[in-house]
Structures are given as structure tokens and as C-alpha cells.
Design a protein around this nucleic acid. Structure first.
Lengths: 246, 246
DNA sequence: ATTACTTAGTGTATTTTATACACTTTTATA
DNA sequence: TATAAAAGTGTATAAAATACACTAAGTAAT
């Protein structure tokens, strides 16, 4: 594996979703530009995590590498969802300044292949050499650099669509989780509420949701039973659904 | 609008699906390479329709332009579904020969942003200056150039997923269609069969499927009532579904 | 004009799933 | 030992899914 960058026209951006049993967060990188002489802050905002692709790397590999560099984790749920290449996507004044400061030509159009990842924040210890990365609650995200607000919005739409039809809610939880936690994942992402008894009735029909002989510990109330998701059982038992009416 | 090509690292490929009341077809371009001296055919196969992006064009615009050039149609259902950029995607022997013959460097990695389009073949008169384009039944597609078989497979998977949850089957039919035709679209794409009465019962609940006071003409049997799809009614009445179990 | 052919169009009974709704149990902590 | 907090559970009703077979309306051939 050489570390030579493929070219300056394609990059990968990742929308990394992290759930913390309470809300949905996105991993963002601080971006601060200071005046070279006065050291005055010209602007300070945030962007998604992204990077180039190396010469002998497929784009999925590049996305996984970025994720690994940030979290130390592998085998995380990761999905390519859209490519962004609008002529003006790097063209806001602050973005131009930032690119120039980093010796990059703001007039070069870069296509960004966007991925989203799902994980439980508690599984992660953040690290990214030199730059400040942090979890920001989805509802508190401000104006991001480049077209990254658009990318985040597209990712959320994709996530909402996908979670309604495929069992990916589990990816936002640790390996063992309670049914209330699972219900909360769906409620937070779909911005709705479910009836507890009906939710459990539905869940009870899914063979791939395995009840464990194990209970929550250290909670100041009746401890809940833990469950795990079995992708193996899922793949074996999944049937095709036919909605087509919404 | 200049016609200057953006760069040589990004292109758009279109998987154009056409339904002919009987089967699903894909629009392919013939590609034949002859030896310059002997005029002997070195190989002859097919590829998807694709093209570069112009300098001031967004990628959606580029895909629409390609579609328009081929079919003369605008406002066709078109969706970006995946970007392909594997290091070896242009690396098969025939592909290398073809690229060299066309004065292109086979070692330049090109990312292809893939779109799929849906239309009724009867709405189209094909034309593409100079090269031979034709409808090929999905089940009769042979080995295509580059990684285009992979792209077609990804498109079919995407189409199957999407048609189960969103009303896009209509896009493969002319504006006015019968319920049997609609049923056939779903049967062909999902490779399954539906009970006629149950299908109609389900369909009857969709407010956005508008029955017309008009019947099929020129058929040697009882003519069926025609229907149309109203996107307006759909947008107004759509509710969110919650499956998450397949 | 009659007949044959072809697809359109329709109803009912049964099973499964969705929905609405409130109280008891189990644990940690004060 | 009382309190706080979330876990866990059942029933009745409505809606949707499924399985299944005959009649109606047109064209084409004789």
C-alpha cells in the first residue's frame, strides 16, 4: 500500500452518527483560520471528517480507513450514500480562504463521495492527530464548512429511510442492549413515539433479536433484560416485503 | 454554458431501464474495436451509456443531458445511486485496448457516478450520434465493458428496494396505464406474482392512483380502464411507514 | 349472427397485524 | 422500610393480508 494520493479531484467525506442512549450525534472536526500576522481568528467553524483516496485504494477502503483513524474501530456499519460535486460546493468566502491558506486551489472542483457510519458513542475513544474532533448533537449543529450541511441532511434522510426497512438500528447500540434502548433509537431517529407494549409485540416476532440470560447492571430501577442482534439469523430468515404505498 | 470537460477523473454512467409491457430492458451502446490495418474485429461488446461532466455542470445536470441526448426526453425519473471507483475498474484487457485506441490513458482511474433512469420504451425514439444504442432485455445482457455488469447489478438492487417502498413503478409506464400493466411491472421487477384481486384491493386504497373515464383501445378482449398517477396527491397524502423488519 | 378466445373485473371468509390503553414488578437509594 | 424509576405484561377492536373462482366485455374467425 503506497500512501500516494490518487488525485486532487475526488475525496471521501464521512457522516459519522453516534448514539449515546439519549440523542443522535455527529462527529465533526474543528476548523479555525487565524491571520498569519495578527494571529487574530478570522473564523472558526466545523466540518465533517473527510480525506483523500490513496492510489491503490478503493473508495470503501478509504472510508473505512478514515473511520479507523478516528475511532480505532473496524467493521463499523458504513454505507456510501451520495456523491456531491456541485460547481459551487467549495465556493463560500470562508472556504476559499481556508483552501488558499492550505495551499489548495479553491477553483478546483472536488467531487466528494459521502458515506455514513453508525456506532454507539460509548464504543469509541476519539483521536485524530492534531485536529480537534468531537461529537455534536444533531440538533445543535451550526453552519458547517463547504456543503457539509447539505451532506448531513442527505445522510439523515438516507438513515431515516433505511432504518424503516432494514435492521440497522442495532448498529447504533452496543452489542448488548435493552428493548427500551432499541425503542429509543427508533424514536430519536424517526422523531416519533411508539407504544411500549406494541413495540415489544412487534419486536417479539423478529427471530434475529436474541434475548440473553443477562440483565442490566448498576441502574437504580428494575434492571432490563439484554438482547443482541444476530445478523446470521437475519440473513437466513429475511423475507421480502412489498409496501409500495406510503 | 461552456462545453469544456471538467476533468478526466470523473464521469457519469446511466443505467436506463425501459419497460415494454413485457420485460425490463436496459439501454446499451455497441462497442467494436477493429484492427487499424487488417480491419479485423478485435472484439465487439456493449457498455452502458455514459459521458463526462462539463465544467459548469452539476452531476445531475450531466446525467439529464446524457438522457436527453439519447432519448430527446426531459423530466425523466433519474436517480444517482452509487459511485464506482475501484482501482481495477478499467483494467480488463479489452478495456485497456479500447481506451488506448481512443487516446486515453488506461491507467488513469476514473470515478463513475452512476444514475438509473426509468421510462416506458414506447415513449422513446432512440438516437445517439454515430454510435449504435439499443434496448437489451435485462435477462439477455452479456458481458459488458469495464465494470458495467457490476453497475447494472447495483442498479437493479436499488430499483428493487426502492420500488417496494416508493411509488416509482408508474415511471416505467406511459402516463395512462391499466392495473394489469401496473401489476406486471411489479411482478417483472420483483420476480414474483401477485393475486389479481388482492393487488387491486391494495391499489384501491392509494388516493394518488387516479381512475380515468377512459378505456384501452384496439385490444382483442375486454378493454381495461386506464389510470394515472398523481404525484401531487401522493406528496399531499403520504404517511411514514415503519417496517424495520423484513 | 354465432361462437370462440382473451383479458377485465369483482366478493367473502379467515388469519394476521396494528392499535389503544393501565397496572404490577423489581431494583437501588434515601 | 418507604420511595423513586423504569421494566414488563394482556385484551379487545379495527385494519390489512391472504386464499380462492366465476362473470363481463370486447375482438376475431367462421
Amino acid at each position: 500500500m503506497t500512501n500516494k494520493v490518487l488525485n486532487n479531484y475526488i475525496s471521501v467525506d464521512c457522516v459519522i452518527f453516534g448514539y449515546d442512549f439519549d440523542k443522535l450525534n455527529i462527529l465533526l472536526v474543528d476548523r479555525t483560520l487565524k491571520d498569519e500576522n495578527t494571529k487574530e481568528t478570522l473564523f472558526s467553524d466545523q466540518t465533517l471528517t473527510g480525506n483523500h483516496i490513496f492510489e491503490d485504494e478503493d473508495i470503501d477502503e478509504a472510508a473505512n480507513r478514515i473511520l479507523f483513524d478516528l475511532t480505532g474501530l473496524q467493521n463499523i456499519y458504513l454505507e456510501q450514500f451520495k456523491t456531491f460535486a456541485h460547481p459551487d460546493r467549495l465556493n463560500k468566502p470562508n472556504d476559499r480562504k481556508w483552501l488558499l491558506h492550505n495551499d489548495r486551489n479553491p477553483d478546483t472542483r472536488i467531487a466528494s463521495i459521502a458515506y455514513f457510519a453508525l456506532l454507539a458513542t460509548q464504543d469509541v475513544t476519539l483521536e485524530w492527530k492534531g485536529r480537534n474532533v468531537k461529537w455534536v448533537p444533531y440538533h445543535e449543529i451550526g453552519e458547517l464548512g463547504f456543503d457539509h450541511n447539505q451532506i448531513v441532511e442527505a445522510a439523515i434522510i438516507e438513515l431515516r429511510n433505511k432504518i424503516k426497512h432494514e435492521p440497522i438500528g442495532f448498529e447504533l447500540l452496543p452489542d448488548k442492549f435493552t428493548l427500551s434502548q432499541l425503542q429509543n433509537v427508533y424514536e430519536i431517529i424517526l422523531d416519533t413515539e411508539f407504544d411500549k407494549r406494541n413495540f415489544r409485540k412487534k419486536v417479539a416476532r423478529m427471530k434475529y433479536l436474541i434475548p440473553l440470560d443477562e440483565k442490566q447492571k448498576g441502574v437504580a430501577h428494575k434492571p432490563a433484560r439484554l438482547y443482541m442482534f444476530s445478523r446470521e439469523v437475519y440473513e437466513k430468515t429475511k423475507k421480502e416485503l412489498f409496501d409500495f404505498w406510503i
